[in-house]
Design a protein around this nucleic acid. Structure first.
Lengths: 340, 340
DNA sequence: TTTTTTAACGAAAACGTTTTCGATTTAATC
DNA sequence: GATTAAATCGAAAACGTTTTCGTTAAAAAA
């Protein structure tokens, strides 16, 4: 009933535990014959090494922690998938925790993971995170941490991001290219760098094209929801009937806006052209389908794990680790919401 | 640099490791004074118990494994969220693995989790899973396993499901109630019980309402994709122009179908009314919005964890565990695709 | 004073591995 | 045959905790 141990195999074969252990790990100082014997009995007894003991001895768990703001989210789902599949290839498992966009919760989750002694941590910060002691504590404990998408510039670690500013520029430029003259922006919350950067990209594109930047055309979303998209869309057509282009921080909000425009008889893209951000799946299936920036979640997850894995390995072998900042390319997906 | 241990605290205070351990765990045979002293120094040294050692000693990891067919999926995301949040409340962490709907991979993941010595396993089976040795191995090792949504009736363990047959009946009845006379069905693959049950519910509803069941109106989806929805929609109007109702196994396919109908000028719901299944978020935002069955993923995740937790606890305390089969209620969400 | 009870502490074993280093045996070399 | 080299094995420590059981000292009861 109890699980098989090295000791049992040793007793059966009348050899030492040491030799059994070595045989299973193909140490050179064990004869072929004993190796064969040991492996055979291990197999028949269905021996599985006690991972708790192995962890304790080797001081590693082959497990990493992942903290994300929200699980039910197309982009983060893709990231999770990327991380899990890459981790599996390297024999790692992933523990997922949610911060729910709360700084306090994020701190707690970090602490939990440190107690759990994961080998490393991947994190995308909560919007409300403005202090970084908890992240630095991880680094103090000499544990690798890699940040992705929502990062803290001031924390000294590897990062995987997209260039939000450039992407937003691309999006806005596209609106300008198709002839929009008065372009509004539904931006994200004031805090996270991403929405700031997207806003700056939008602004820069206007300026580079000699279009006037009008701050009253910028609406600040807080919870980035479908309903917020609807509400601001309504507000926009009431306050600025002459707007002909709209760049929105996130597809979900954009879909809300489109829905509201449809309802009110505002024709997208004829009356107002729209570009979203992230390329959620639904953006391709709504009507009109939404032009957007493809944010490569799956790739980002893969890359983030790869960086973390390398850091874990290097630390183990006492090789100096160099922090990298990887910028993944984005792509403009043109669809009906900007097609004439 | 090295993490603080009980030994260090003991040496500082000139007491034994035993007493330190006991003090931290509030054993009654430690004086208030020593307790205070120990806790203070533990705090100032930022002591964190070595979880590897604790695991080895207590033979539990406070970690469970979760195997799902696909991470990037609205329903499963919700389940994940439900599981994680409930697990957190009880001090558990969740390792997530993907089976990618592959039986072989599922077997491998189970083995990985057993080696990892998780305290229990939650699983939603892959479509291709038809043999259950791997699941029984878990039970043989006396480890709790709880299945949800895609279950195996023949495996003796707790389960959390919805009544797919009843739900499908509900959906079909709704189509009949609004006046549909000739109702088609895009069903799921032949294997998993869910799609069989949904098909049976559809059929039963027809029979109970004296409508003829016509097998040529049933189309079998294999990969349950958006494109499959489009393709079968096209095929349907070519082969059966007189169909006025359509019940589809999954929202994603339904959205594909709607998209195709829209493109071809088939008016939903006037020409053909549609009911989907699962209530993916996008179903509420497409046009026309999709009537569907709400599948309570979040609740299902919570419930599944609760059952698993109880089994873990009971096993530890040698209380006999009774396997439960919990059936969560579903709800018909009426939207435009069936509204006249 | 002696005995019993209670409070407070600690020694030691155990959990199952990994790995160092020394011991033994056998084969190779002189 | 003596010496060295190579091959094979095992003893033992270590990882850091938990828990049983015994010990000591102080307080209470006799």
């Amino acid at each position: 009933m109890k699980p098989v141990t090295l000791r049992q195999i040793a007793e059966i074969l009348n050899i030492s535990i040491t030799t059994v252990s070595k045989a299973l790990k193909d140490y050179p100082d064990v004869s072929k014959k004993t190796k064969r014997l040991v492996k055979e009995t291990a197999k028949t007894l269905n021996y599985k090494p006690n991972s708790f003991a192995v962890n304790l001895r080797t001081r590693e768990s082959k497990t990493i922690g992942l903290i994300i703001p929200e699980v039910v989210h197309h982009f983060f789902s893709s990231v999770i998938k990327g991380i899990i599949s890459q981790a599996e290839k390297n024999g790692y498992m992933v523990i997922i925790l949610q911060s729910n966009e709360s700084f306090e919760l994020e701190k707690k989750q970090i602490d939990l993971l440190l107690r759990k002694q994961v080998d490393g941590i991947l994190i995308s910060l909560a919007n409300s995170t403005v202090r970084y002691e908890h992240l630095n504590e991880v680094l103090d404990q000499n544990k690798p941490i890699v940040m992705f998408d929502k990062i803290a510039k001031l924390v000294n670690c590897s990062k995987v991001i997209i260039n939000d500013r450039k992407a937003a520029y691309l999006a806005t430029q596209h609106l300008i290219d198709i002839g929009c003259k008065r372009i509004a922006h539904f931006r994200g919350p004031l805090l996270p760098q991403n929405s700031i950067d997207r806003f700056l990209g939008y602004k820069k594109a206007l300026e580079d094209n000699n279009l006037i930047y009008d701050s009253s055309l910028v609406y600040v979303c807080n919870d980035m929801s479908f309903d917020e998209g609807k509400n601001f869309a309504k507000q926009l057509i009431e306050e600025h009937s002459n707007v002909d282009g709209l760049f929105i921080n996130t597809d979900l909000v954009a879909v809300g806006a489109i829905s509201e425009f449809n309802k009110r008889g505002v024709i997208v893209p004829k009356d107002i052209a729209i570009v979203g951000f992230s390329n959620w799946f639904m953006s391709s299936v709504i009507s009109p389908s939404l032009t957007t920036i493809d944010q490569p979640g799956y790739k980002m997850g893969k890359k983030a794990f790869k960086l973390l894995y390398k850091e874990i390995k290097n630390k183990k072998e006492n090789i100096e680790v160099k922090y990298k900042k990887v910028e993944l390319p984005v792509q403009l997906i043109k669809r009906e919401s900007t097609a004439f």
